[in-house]
Computed example of a mutant assay.
Amino acid sequence: MVGRLYVKRQAAFLLKFARATSNPELAAVLVEKAADLKAQAEPQPRAEDKSPVAPDVE
């Protein structure tokens, strides 16, 4: 798995390049890719356990 810091730096580079280019279509693609990378770098929330719970019996 790629480190979170690496992915964040790659996203920052893509955003910097998107601001520097004069091609709006390329800028849009780069921003979208940066957003994908950022989402990939963020920790995913754990899914709640939806399995049935046994009733309390005394």
Rank of each mutant, 00 (worst) to 15 (best):
M1Q: 15
M1C: 13
V2C: 01
R4Q: 08
R4N: 04
R4M: 03
R4I: 03
R4S: 05
Y6M: 05
V7Q: 00
V7Y: 02
K8T: 05
R9Y: 02
R9E: 06
Q10M: 04
Q10P: 02
A11K: 04
F13K: 09
L14G: 01
L14K: 02
L14E: 01
L15M: 14
L15N: 15
L15W: 01
K16T: 09
K16Y: 09
K16V: 01
F17H: 07
A18R: 00
A18I: 02
A18M: 00
A18D: 03
R19V: 02
A20H: 05
A20V: 05
T21G: 01
T21I: 04
N23K: 11
P24L: 04
L26E: 12
L26F: 05
A28M: 06
L30E: 06
L30T: 03
L30I: 02
V31K: 15
V31P: 00
V31Y: 07
E32S: 14
E32N: 11
A34C: 02
A34R: 02
A35C: 03
D36I: 08
L37I: 03
L37A: 01
L37C: 00
K38L: 13
K38D: 10
A39W: 06
Q40F: 09
Q40M: 11
A41W: 01
A41C: 04
A41K: 02
E42Q: 09
E42N: 02
E42Y: 04
P43D: 12
P43V: 11
Q44A: 14
Q44G: 07
Q44E: 13
P45E: 11
P45D: 11
R46H: 13
R46Y: 11
A47F: 14
A47L: 15
E48T: 12
E48K: 15
E48I: 13
E48D: 15
D49C: 11
D49L: 09
K50R: 15
S51M: 14
V53L: 14
A54Q: 15
V57S: 09
E58L: 14
E58T: 11
E58Q: 14
